[in-house]
Design a protein around this nucleic acid. Structure first.
Lengths: 254, 254
DNA sequence: GGACTTGAGTGGTTTAGACCATTGCGATTA
DNA sequence: TAATCGCAATGGTCTAAACCACTCAAGTCC
């Protein structure tokens, strides 16, 4: 969408805010990128460096930013390729499976591990239990059309869901809660922020450590307002964005 | 200072995942950071480099990640300081002013510029007008307690709001729409994604170019479902996170 | 044919050093 | 006293070079 801010051009040659080389290079590469179809390859770092007359370090800085924005994909040992754009994920209180299907994508989900531990004070507060009570921690890898999409770590109070650890699998957690315990979700409080990938997350998501991530935390309650789970999900920031539909509580003018 | 034993990468004789130095350094710095009160200062880059026996480049990479996460604040010419944590911004269809007040903060908002231009095809579609029709573009700098918080760029169809450009100021836009045109907002579609700061944005937000940002796009409609505005807001990713309360459409189990 | 080895090319990490831009404070000066 | 200057320390940018880790395809061997 045509953005034309005043003063972003270099002029006077005097005390100009001095545009860094890597930024200028980034723009030239972005231009080059417009004529490369998604998936197409770019020249190697060394080639770009000599092509544009800068050091490889500078090239890498420019490429790193383009990668963080999802406009490039880099594969170690293979090359640098044009990106594919971002997917969207709706912010709503529904299951992952349902959510993805409504976007016409094929969702799968695999349980990475399930273990029982003691709640620390902070977690106990969130789940409405006492510090030290048993908590079931589930880690799942979410995929869409086979592509790793997010790592989801759920924590549930075991006292409320006795034996839950024996039922969990790759299937829907919310389905289990309803079938075995008659619990349905009522509302949730969700926060979204940026984060950087840890090496472990990066390995699972096919990312590199330190990459931009969207960190989504969800605190879910059942229909009677009792806390059910606390979830932290990590999404690749270069591939996903979130959508929410907001409704006015009433017309507010101020 | 315990030199890194190169041996820990060879213990199993196979291919160990090899932790980069800058990551290990980052963790050691994070540890150090836990005993520094917010605003407290850290040693300079050169001091850290010799202290930990690594190059300044590696130190900078570790510091850059901590900064992106909002755990550090760096001031050119002055030093590196411990961060202050993130604020939250509620995702709801209400005015900025109201929104901030409910968080006990003092909001201000200044109009950077207001100009009239022609809609390109994409924008025309969003605003329900024809390509080339007049569009009013407003750029605002939002502050909370005096701190730059976000840059908000709104676009409205001038044909629906004739003379709007003569009314706009630092006050509430939604208030104007109601007073002069009897228009109230009904619902909006909002997307959230990561982005990197442009030099212009960075200058306004007191950031550095290439920093992590949260890009929030809002497509607002009036109570009759007609498009009213299209807004893109850029927030500092190291300082803000967003909150949404989600309500189950009904109990969904699957 | 099929399994293996090898090597060239790619991105990833790290180093040491140079220079620039900004800040803040102490010394100097009006 | 008050303003100014100078300078040292800080973070910011950039270079050139080395080495590592991964990929892939060509070549080799059985």
């Amino acid at each position: 969408m045509g953005e034309n801010l005043p003063g972003d051009a270099v002029e006077n040659g005097k005390k100009s805010p001095r545009t860094p080389k890597h930024w200028e290079l980034k723009e030239r590469l972005a231009e080059l990128l417009r004529v490369v179809s998604p998936g197409g390859s770019l020249p190697g770092e060394r080639a770009l460096a000599s092509e544009f007359g800068v050091s490889r370090t500078t090239v890498r800085k420019a490429l790193a930013e383009l990668t963080a924005e999802g406009r490039l994909t880099r594969v170690h040992g293979s090359g640098t390729f044009a990106g594919e754009g971002k997917l969207t994920q709706r912010l709503q209180l529904s299951s992952y499976t349902e959510d993805m299907r409504s976007h016409g994508r094929h969702p799968t989900s695999s349980l990475l591990d399930a273990r029982i531990g003691a709640a620390d004070p902070e977690l106990a507060l969130l789940l409405g239990i006492r510090s030290g009570d048993d908590v079931l921690r589930l880690r799942r890898l979410r995929r869409a059309d086979g592509e790793p999409m997010a790592i989801e770590t759920s924590r549930l109070p075991l006292a409320r869901f006795p034996g839950l650890e024996r039922h969990v699998g790759d299937g829907s957690l919310y389905g289990l809660l309803w079938e075995y315990y008659g619990v349905a979700l009522g509302h949730a409080e969700e926060t979204i922020e940026t984060a950087l990938a840890t090496p472990a997350e990066a390995a699972l998501l096919g990312n590199e450590a330190g990459a931009l991530m969207l960190l989504l935390s969800r605190h879910s309650f059942d229909t009677e307002g009792r806390p059910v789970e606390w979830v932290r999900s990590v999404y690749r920031g270069d591939r996903y964005k979130f959508v929410a539909t907001l409704v006015s509580p009433q017309s507010d003018h101020h």
